[in-house]
């Protein structure tokens, strides 16, 4: 099954004041796919999103978004994609309805009243339409922002950390909505720091220091990392993190509650590393998690990279 590509960029590079923020970034994304965009703070996620949506002109690299050229057809790209900024980008001193009406008018949409009305109904905000947007809670602001950038029915959604500071239930609903949109064929590229959100994506891309380090489905990324993990349970297991991490063959060790989660690339080496504590603590092999992979990638970003293409 091949789906048509909606995002197809290659070699995107952006420098600010001589510092390379994004370094030869490639991404192909098909219709209806949800791609989680992960990476530490300052890794170039926002810059990449801005280049894709036409807010920044790349210093190097080419690409097409919805078949439009990333450089010469920026204006048309802006018209056809939805971009939700990290910070609430609507006007706090306008009402919910006024905000939506403004967006609809900027995009030159027909049947503006009807569209805005429908969007309000979908949002469940019809009764609060005349409330100032600034008065909404974080979760509602985020829903309003999503509704606003979906108003012109874009085929691509770029979401920059949309769920930062939003409670778990609102996040869950938000993701249900993202999946519903993807089912209609919309391509979603969403940056996030949450592992559970990453796992809800069809595929993920991990970027650090402007370089893509891992790419693929969750399983592919975990497998490609070659990481193995041991979980230790027993009295004081959680306090051993620093001691065990210093041992050869251990890449990361982190406490989760009372248990300790230890990662390395070689299972035998791992077992040797934890052997001094084998009498008090019971060690069992557990699958490496996406979080293990990302923590590991972050720590070894300069000397290690995982490439797995779907």
């Amino acid at each position: 099954m091949t789906v048509p590509l909606t995002i197809d960029v290659a070699g995107l590079t952006k420098r600010f004041a001589g510092r390379t923020v994004v370094d030869h970034f490639d991404l192909q994304l098909g219709e209806g796919r949800i791609c989680g965009f992960l990476g530490p703070n300052g890794s170039g996620k926002t810059t990449t999103l801005r280049m894709i949506c036409g807010l920044l002109i790349p210093d190097e690299g080419e690409g097409q978004v919805l078949g439009l050229d990333l450089r010469s057809e920026r204006a048309e790209i802006k018209r056809r994609i939805g971009y939700m900024t990290q910070r609430f980008g609507l006007f706090e001193d306008l009402t919910i309805r006024e905000n939506l009406d403004f967006v609809a008018q900027v995009y030159g949409l027909d049947h503006r009243r009807r569209r805005v009305g429908e969007a309000l109904d979908r949002l469940g905000l019809a009764t609060r339409a005349d409330q100032l947007a600034g008065k909404l809670s974080g979760g509602w602001k985020q829903r309003l922002a999503l509704a606003a950038c979906m108003l012109h029915e874009p085929r691509i959604l770029l979401l920059d950390e949309p769920t930062a500071g939003v409670d778990p239930q609102a996040r869950r609903e938000f993701w249900d909505q993202i999946h519903a949109l993807a089912r209609t064929g919309i391509t979603v590229l969403v940056s996030t720091h949450y592992m559970d959100e990453a796992e809800r994506c069809h595929e993920i891309a991990y970027i650090a220091y402007g370089v893509m380090l891992a790419r693929g489905t969750t399983e592919q990324v975990v497998v490609a990392s070659g990481l193995r993990a041991l979980t230790g349970e027993g009295p004081g297991a959680d306090r051993l993190a620093a001691d065990i991490e210093a041992r050869p063959g251990v890449r990361t060790a982190a406490a989760f509650g009372a248990a300790l989660h230890v990662c390395g690339t070689d299972l035998a080496e791992l077992r040797t590393a934890v052997s001094p504590w084998a009498d008090q603590i019971r060690w069992t092999e557990t699958p490496a998690t996406l979080e293990d992979v990302f923590i590991d990638l972050m720590r070894h970003a300069s000397d290690h990279s995982v490439q797995a293409r779907p």
């Binding site: 949506c53 807010l55 802006k78 910070r87 980008g89 706090e92 900027v106």
Partner: peptide, 14 residues
């Protein structure tokens, strides 16, 4: 200052 400029620029406003 309020962060709405980025949103404006992302829209088809010249």
């Amino acid at each position: 200052e309020r962060g709405t400029m980025e949103n404006l620029l992302a829209m088809p406003l010249r």
